[in-house]
Design a protein around this nucleic acid. Structure first.
Length: 825
RNA sequence: GCUGGAGUGGCGGAAUGGUAUACGCGUCGGUCUCAAAAACCGAUGUUCGCAAGGGCGUGUGGGUUCAAGUCCCACCUCCAGCACCA
């Protein structure tokens, strides 16, 4: 075998060193060249790289190298998302510091990345825990404070008891902490928020411009932002000045509102029962509901529980007196925390009303059950119909009535048209050590004072006690906490919370544009050249959190004049997971395949080729050892073919070619075309690679006599093309083979991508099929572009065709040029 | 329930409305070998048939078309995300 394990190690190390020493992939802005910014979601340094990283970064690397060959000026950087809680846990466990542990992990990861042969511009490498980076986190935060987009408020927050910290809404998955899966509870705390809701409208509207994002990511963000159109309606409480404002998307059902329901946390919930017979029951119910953590209350499986407040309100449209209830299915966090209940046309209200014996009124006709009474209903009628029992609006289709009733109520002062969002402001305070200190100071005299910009960075102290027991570790570092107020100079205290680490990753793609700029956050001109990221690649798990925050930050930085784009990422590819035996590879499952071991045995090129070939990048990838060996064999075939059959020659291929030559030429151009189309049509690496395999099959079949010297040139061309087409996928072998062919160059990465000639794809004869009544009955080899005149006698005379049309009349004879003929009898 | 996506050989997966299953893996047979591995050559949807040659085949049922994996309608199943969001 030409390519042994020793060869691999030698060849791969040789080229990795060559690329590094000569800074082959250094990116420099060049207005004369078309730029291409390709980016992977940078890793959290928690150890060595794993197969998920390998897949993600191989995908981007192939794209980067392909674009280089297409003549683009490519920016392909790498760094580390290095702040975060696991470093604190690891520090406790290993009796080291988060910093030491993190930088050690970064060294390990860097080594792993280099072994894979990725084409990074290593000059732009950084870690978010470098003070030269997080200084600019603080800078952004202060800018947001200045613009009123960062603010502090006291409110109920998501609290993870196990991590002993707050969580953003986006970090709560199924009522549990996204990291440790512990149930999240609600707690009242005074915390820092970023006003992402300021951009809600734009974040939603601009999703429409992201045509090169996966549909599901766009859909998930749309759901998350959650805009609903409807109106607020005012219900006066009888016997007082209180007004209950409800939010509804169904103003068409207002005449059917037979009671009002408040969330247990609603400010009026307790107040309305005061002094009524219901007071004790209400208090008990509220206390119980609030204690139950968010998740079971929202599960939808629970019976809908509630209690009457003892108070009544007035339905503004018909003056009806209706009871006010408290229900645990109403959420304070959405809308106004109060709803009008229309049991006949809302399933939740229906269940609640049935459970508590509340009144119902039909106001939308069910066309399939005309004249149905509430007593006859087994479920709410939520679909369309004409209005009934709704005064002047009777007979109007309900969709139409929505607008009419809303406008009418608005006119009469009964309500107003309004829009509600699901998106909440982003809570960024974390009671942790290993993160960016929030640059604020609390002064007894001046209040909350920002750290002046020239005093940045506020450095993380190295000696904070990390116990994992909760509470901000920074609060225990006297030298950190005690500070002179920047405004009045008197003794003050620093903020001791740190920022959520998603803050760090919300703008790192901009920092790469001028990674070591110590004067500004980034060079505006360089960012203008490189941005937006043309192709972003990462896991679907970031569909909401990271991608939404990054879009928010980009819009903010645009508004303060630092970036020119509205959106940071033009194209997004979400790569699939790596599975083994049908399950995601993970340490806890013990089904890890270590990239290092694969590289030691087969080399990085084999690993890359296997990962790219075995499944499309977006799909799940099932680890398959024989598939890996198949990739190894293929590289060897190419290697062997070049080594044994490629010979320098002076005799060029002329106009005279025999059939064998023409076949190989045809296959060569076909391969170029197919690989190019697979790359351009959405990076279908698996089909790109298969096209080169087909070419190599043709090379193996190509027989030639040494006496006919021009044939060497045809063979050489085919081999050169195969190596060039493979260069993005197996860069080490490609560089080596290219060199073996005697081509001295800087790097194969800068050799122009091969082009195909349409004429070469036009063979003299074509194989066509003949169908009779839609079934293929025969095949013919005919001259290219043969027409019906030529084909008709030929096809009809065929024995197999005759058998199927015998005795029948040929009604139609359809010719699809160079494909088939279709006969209808 | 809502949203997005997917159902194709033994397996991973290919197919601008035009010869379904490219390419790879696996399996079977062969060459080489004392033997094995590697390598190379060939076969491989299913079914009936000795063969020639048929039948059936892309989740199900309809439809459009000379022609449907692909387009339309109605379903089923699976995966993912969201979800008492008023």
């Amino acid at each position: 075998m030409p390519y042994t394990t020793n060869d691999i190690r030698r060849v791969e190390e040789k080229w990795q060193a060559y690329w590094a020493v000569n800074k082959i992939f250094r990116a420099v802005p060049d207005p004369a060249k078309k730029k291409y910014y390709v980016l992977e979601m940078f890793p959290y340094p928690s150890g060595k790289i794993h197969m998920g990283h390998v897949r993600n970064y191989t995908i981007t690397d192939v794209i980067a190298r392909y674009k280089m060959m297409r003549g683009h000026n490519v920016l392909h950087p790498m760094g580390y998302d290095a702040f975060g809680q696991p470093a604190e846990n690891a520090a406790i466990k290993r009796n080291t510091s988060p910093s030491e542990w993190t930088y050690k992990c970064i060294d390990d990861m860097r080594a792993g990345l280099r072994k894979m042969g990725f084409s990074y511009d290593w000059d732009r490498e950084f870690a978010t825990c470098d003070d030269t980076y997080y200084k600019w986190n603080q800078w952004i935060f202060l800018k947001m404070v200045e613009q009123g987009l960062a603010y502090k408020k006291s409110s109920p927050v998501n609290w993870c008891p196990s991590c002993a910290t707050t969580l953003a809404n986006e970090e709560v998955i199924d009522g549990a902490c996204w990291r440790c899966k512990e149930a999240v509870v609600q707690k009242d705390l005074n915390q820092w928020y970023l006003k992402i809701t300021h951009y809600a409208e734009e974040l939603l509207a601009d999703l429409k411009t992201l045509n090169n994002w996966p549909a599901r990511v766009v859909a998930m963000q749309e759901n998350w932002i959650g805009k609903s159109y409807g109106c607020e309606i005012f219900f006066k409480v009888k016997g007082g000045d209180d007004v209950i404002t409800v939010f509804t998307t169904r103003p068409d059902t207002i005449f059917g509102a037979t009671y009002v329901t408040l969330a247990p946390e609603h400010p009026l919930a307790r107040k309305l029962s005061l002094g009524t017979a219901q007071e004790a029951a209400v208090t008990a119910f509220i206390d119980k509901s609030i204690q139950v953590s968010k998740s079971p209350r929202m599960s939808g499986e629970e019976r809908k529980e509630g209690v009457f407040t003892g108070a009544y309100a007035v339905n503004p449209v018909n003056g009806a007196t209706i009871p006010v209830w408290i229900g645990d299915y109403v959420l304070m966090a959405y809308g106004t925390g109060a709803i009008m209940a229309v049991p006949t046309h809302d399933q939740r209200d229906f269940e609640f009303a049935r459970a508590h014996g509340l009144a119902m009124r039909v106001v939308i006709e069910d066309a399939t059950h005309p004249g149905m009474t509430p007593e006859q209903m087994s479920a709410a009628h939520e679909s369309e119909g004409k209005l009934t029992g709704s005064g002047d609006f009777d007979g109007i289709p309900n969709e139409e009535a929505k607008g009419k009733i809303a406008a009418w109520m608005s006119d009469k002062g009964m309500g107003r048209v309004s829009v509600h969002w699901r998106l909440r402001d982003w809570l960024i305070s974390r009671q942790r050590y290993w993160g960016t200190p929030i640059p604020m100071i609390y002064c007894p005299a001046c209040g909350v004072v920002p750290v002046p910009v020239d005093q940045l960075p506020v450095r993380l102290p190295v000696d904070a006690p990390i116990t994992g027991e909760g509470g901000s570790p920074l609060a225990k570092v006297k030298a950190f906490v005690e500070v002179a107020c920047p405004a009045c100079g008197k003794a003050a205290r620093r903020e001791t919370d740190t920022m959520a680490t998603f803050f760090d990753s919300s703008w790192y793609f901009l920092r790469y544009c001028s990674a070591h700029n110590d004067k500004e956050i980034f060079d505006v001109k360089e960012a203008a050249y490189w941005m937006p990221v043309d192709q972003y690649v990462g896991g679907i798990e970031h569909a909401i959190l990271h991608l939404l925050y990054s879009r928010f930050f980009t819009k903010f930085l645009r508004d303060i004049g630092l970036v020119a784009v509205d959106e940071p990422f033009d194209r997004l590819l979400t790569q699939g997971m790596v599975l083994k035996d049908g399950e995601v590879m993970s340490k806890s499952r013990g089904n890890i395949v270590d990239p290092d071991e694969v590289i030691a045995r087969f080399g990085a090129d084999t690993l890359r080729l296997f990962i790219l070939f075995v499944a499309p990048p977006e799909d799940q990838l099932e680890w398959n050892p024989s598939g890996l060996e198949g990739s190894w064999k293929f590289i060897n075939r190419v290697w062997g073919a070049v080594e044994t059959r490629y010979k320098a020659t002076n005799v060029a291929a002329g106009a005279v070619m025999d059939a064998d030559d023409k076949v190989l030429q045809f296959e060569r151009h076909t391969a170029v075309k197919k690989v190019t189309e697979s790359m351009e049509g959405g990076f279908k690496f698996n089909t790109a690679i298969s096209a080169v395999m087909v070419l190599m099959n043709a090379v193996d079949k190509y027989k030639f006599s040494i006496d006919i010297q021009y044939k060497q040139s045809i063979l050489n061309e085919a081999l050169e093309t195969a190596v060039l087409l493979l260069a993005p996928f197996i860069p080490h072998a490609a560089e080596e083979l290219w060199q073996m062919m005697g081509k001295a160059v800087t790097s194969i990465a800068f050799i122009p991508w091969p082009v195909y000639v349409e004429d070469a794809l036009r063979t003299d004869t074509v194989r066509i099929a003949a169908q009779v009544n839609g079934k293929v009955r025969a095949e013919f080899v005919v001259p290219r572009d043969a027409d019906e005149k030529l084909l008709r006698p030929l096809v009809l005379a065929d024995e197999a065709v005759q058998r199927h049309i015998a005795g029948k009349e040929v009604r139609k004879f359809i010719v699809i040029p160079n494909k088939l003929v279709s006969i209808v009898v």
